[in-house]
């Protein structure tokens, strides 16, 4: 992401629903396997304030994708429930999804890909999609097909699509893990910039500690069926990855992350 592109983006023209809070109440999930019932996690209680950028960190098989799928309403929890609440107390909250791969319709242009998820929006016009493409730095790509975009640009369309439904909560499943580090780094900066402009709660799943520290206000660590780490991120934004504060906090977070094996 070039600085020039970032500067050209404007979010002022976007009317945005305010962020919603997320509440996990006694959440648990088990799967039936041939060997019997396998518990992924249980008894998880969690409150995430509106507008918070939360990263859920866990090792492979820790259940972080399962938790995201439950929060996304893709999976039913075995016990407990997930509640979303707007600042006015209502529970009618839009959820925006950004996946590990962009999941774009290859036969549709960028604008059409955004239009696709607006079936229930009678006021939808293509100018709406274009505003969000502008926001993520794709001003001159409205009518391009995904095959004409790089991996990073495709993921930006995925982010624009998720933001375009004006979500109170943005759910992101390792969205940069398939990208090269330079592209991923640019997109992280872009994501933070967009998040700061639009009032959104972000629930971001990752296995990358540096990414989690760079992005989040709060880091949750999932393992052995429970949230064993819950860290407030004390670092000011913008965050310098090579600053002493960043590296010190990273050390502390890594120690906590590995403490589950001790």
């Amino acid at each position: 992401m070039s600085t020039k592109q970032s500067e050209s983006v404007s979010a002022e023209s976007i009317d945005s629903q305010s962020a919603a809070s997320i509440h996990l109440e006694n959440l648990g999930k088990t799967f039936d396997t041939k060997e019997g019932t396998e518990e992924v996690f249980s008894g998880i209680d969690l409150d995430i304030e509106p507008g918070t950028f939360v990263c859920l960190l866990g090792k492979s098989g820790s259940g972080k994708s399962t938790m995201l799928n439950i929060v996304s309403n893709v999976l039913e929890p075995t016990e407990g429930r997930v509640v979303f609440r707007n600042r006015d107390g209502s529970e009618d909250v839009n959820l925006g999804h950004v996946f590990q791969s962009p999941r774009l319709l290859p036969w549709n242009t960028c604008v059409q890909n955004i239009e696709y998820v607006h079936e229930n929006n009678p006021d939808y016009e293509d100018s709406h999609a274009k505003r969000y493409l502008d926001l993520v730095g794709l001003k001159n790509h409205y009518n391009k097909y995904p095959t004409q975009l790089s991996g990073g640009q495709q993921q930006r369309v995925g982010i624009a699509r998720a933001l375009s439904i004006d979500p109170g909560v943005l759910l992101m499943d390792e969205p940069f893990s398939n990208l090269d580090e330079i592209t991923a780094e640019g997109l992280r900066e872009e994501l933070v910039r967009v998040w700061q402009k639009l009032d959104k709660t972000v629930f971001f799943v990752t296995h990358d500690m540096t990414e989690a520290i760079q992005l989040s206000d709060r880091i949750l660590m999932l393992g052995k069926g429970r949230i064993y780490g819950d860290l407030e991120n004390p670092l000011d934004r913008p965050r310098e990855l090579d600053s002493n504060e960043f590296l010190e906090f990273r050390q502390k977070a890594i120690r906590l992350f590995h403490s589950i094996e001790d």
Binding site: N73, V74, L95, H97, R103, Y116, N120
Partner: peptide, 12 residues
């Protein structure tokens, strides 16, 4: 994956 995406965005 595209069907899952559709479902996640409440596409009919």
């Amino acid at each position: 994956e595209l069907m899952e995406m559709s479902s996640a965005f409440d596409v009919s």
